[in-house]
Structures are given as structure tokens and as C-alpha cells.
């Protein structure tokens, strides 16, 4: 009885053909991430050259694949400083920024979101007003202002980006808390007399962990890019700190003479962000398919 089953409309085609989820992609991604972590932490002691060592004879030497030499594989800048060494040292700043901002923003945002979702009423109204405030005050303005009164520093970057990002957690966590608090197990806990704190920590929080972790991953690339942007403008890390954004800013005036000074750090930012985002997407699907439309 071979019967043609009539189909209604087009068959649903899996459309994520190119957002590859194969184990191979994941392996490549994780390898890149581990490399980034190693370079960011141990890198500075592994670098071939002192990133601030001047080599005036070898100024503006192009990368090795563009006619340069192996003593400076990625070329040198106008003071003869080694691009590769500076790139590796720059990774550290990105890593420190991520390592400081993610935990702080996660903690503040999740806590406030949890409080707003659980207590509702005025608590929620005040917290959501703070979320609104952050919308009216773009991070870049805060960064500029802090740089104007305190001078550029890594501390400013951390403050600015925590300010800019905590609301992401607050919004999502609040929403999920609102739906969790109506669930039977929460009502049951309340019935047997558990207090607010206990319910929030023992019953609601475990249900939020997935989303919190996913948001953290998805914001890593944002932080790397934002730190580079702020440092590029001169309102990020202090002037003498080596960072990818600052490297691009310094190479800018030499764009027509030494293309690699701007291109190389940019490709570093691009690669890391891309890899982290792909990993984040994978993690999101792995932990919680419902969150697919978080951003």
C-alpha cells in the first residue's frame, strides 16, 4: 500500500544549514577558546619579545607573509615594537575585562531580577526604572564622562560595562522568576512555611541557572568588542596599557603605510568574538532550546 501522503504546503526544511553544530565545529571553537585563555593568562611570559622593546632599525616591518622576516612574524609598528607580542599582551586586557565584568554584572543583574520578579510591586517598579535609566544613558556616554572626570582606566571600563549589561540579566531573570513563582513546587514550598529567602535560593535560583549562564556566554563577545571600542576612543584602559583597541587606534594614522597595524588586532577581535558567539549559540541550544530568541 504505497500511498503518497499529501503534504500541506512546503515541507519544513531545517534552515540552520550554516550555523554548524557539528562536533567538529565545537571542537575547533573550544580549541580557539582554550588558546585564547592560555594566551591571555600565560601568554605574556611566552611572548618572543618584550611588547615595549623598541627596534628602531626594524620599524614598520611587514608581517612575514607580506615580505617581512621571522624575527617579527606579524610585523612591527612605527617604533619597531613587535605586533605579535603586543597582540598577546592585549589579549590579557580583554580577558581581565571579561573576567571582572561578567561575574559582577551577572551577580547584580540576577539578584535584582530575582528580587523584582519575586516581590513585584514597588521593588519591581524601582528596579525596572533603573533598567529604563540605563536605556537613556548609552554606555559610551558614561564611559566618556568617567574618562573626563577620572581619566581613562580599566576600572572605568568595568564600571561602564557592568552598568551597561546588568539589565540584560535583570530583565530575563525577572521574567523567568515571574513564571517560576506560579509553579506548583514553589507554591508547595510556601505552603509548608518556607521563607522568601529559602524559596528564592533553593527553589527558584536552580531554575534560573541555565539562562544566567547562557547570558553570561552571550555577553563575553560584547565585552571584548566594547572594551576595544572604548580603548580605541581613548576612554577605555589607561593610555600605556596594551589593548587591541588601543593598538588599532595607534595604527590608524599609518593605515596607508602599514596595513597590518590596524588589520591584525581587528582580526583578533573578530575571531575571538565569532568563536565565543558560536560557542554561546551551541551552549544555548544544549542547555535550553527555549531561549533561542534571547537576542
Amino acid at each position: 500500500m504505497a500511498v503518497d501522503v499529501p503534504t500541506l504546503g512546503e515541507p519544513v526544511r531545517r534552515r540552520r544549514r550554516f550555523r554548524v553544530r557539528s562536533p567538529k565545529t565545537l571542537a575547533v571553537t573550544v580549541t580557539f577558546l582554550i588558546a585564547f585563555l592560555i594566551l591571555g593568562t600565560a601568554g605574556p611570559s611566552l611572548t618572543p619579545d618584550d611588547p615595549n622593546a623598541l627596534d628602531l632599525a626594524g620599524r614598520l616591518q611587514p608581517p612575514v607573509f607580506d615580505g617581512g622576516a621571522w624575527n617579527h612574524p606579524l610585523g612591527t609598528d612605527d617604533l619597531g615594537r613587535d605586533t605579535l607580542s603586543r597582540l598577546i599582551h592585549g589579549a590579557r586586557v580583554s580577558l581581565i575585562a571579561v573576567g571582572l565584568i561578567i561575574p559582577i554584572a551577572t551577580l547584580i543583574g540576577s539578584l535584582l531580577g530575582l528580587l523584582a520578579g519575586w516581590f513585584g510591586g514597588w521593588t519591581s517598579r524601582i528596579i525596572m526604572a533603573l533598567v529604563d535609566l540605563q536605556l537613556a544613558l548609552p554606555a559610551i556616554l558614561v564611559a566618556v564622562f568617567l574618562a573626563a572626570i577620572w581619566g581613562p582606566s580599566l576600572t572605568n571600563v568595568v564600571i561602564v560595562l557592568v552598568f551597561a549589561l546588568w539589565a540584560t540579566w535583570a530583565r530575563i531573570v525577572r521574567g523567568e522568576t515571574l513564571s517560576l513563582r506560579e509553579r506548583e513546587f514553589v507554591i508547595a514550598a510556601r505552603t509548608i512555611g518556607a521563607n522568601d529567602l529559602r524559596i528564592m535560593l533553593r527553589h527558584i535560583l536552580p531554575g534560573l541557572i541555565n539562562s544566567i549562564v547562557i547570558l553570561a556566554t552571550l555577553n563575553v563577545a560584547t565585552i571584548v568588542i566594547a572594551e576595544a571600542g572604548l580603548s580605541f576612543l581613548g576612554v577605555g584602559v589607561a593610555q600605556d596599557t596594551i589593548s587591541w583597541g588601543a593598538m588599532i587606534s595607534q595604527g590608524r594614522d599609518l593605515l596607508n603605510v602599514a596595513w597590518w597595524l590596524v588589520t591584525v588586532p581587528g582580526i583578533a577581535i573578530l575571531t575571538i568574538s565569532l568563536v565565543i558567539n558560536i560557542f554561546g549559540d551551541w551552549l544555548r541550544d544544549f542547555l535550553d532550546p527555549q531561549l533561542r530568541n534571547v537576542r
Binding site: G229, F232, R252, T263, I269, L274, I278
Partner: peptide, 29 residues
Amino acid sequence: GGGVDLISRLFALLGQAVPNFWLGLMLIL
């Protein structure tokens, strides 16, 4: 699932990874 769809998704993925100041400099270059 066609060509434009694929390219547009590629751009969306890249768009979240490329800093805009760097994009400007690359356009100049």
C-alpha cells in the same frame, strides 16, 4: 534556505563579531 538567506545569516553572525570602528577603517583601507 536560499543563497540570500545564507548570506544574510552570515552577515548577521559577522555583524555581532566585527567592531564598527574597525569596519570603518577597513572600508577606508
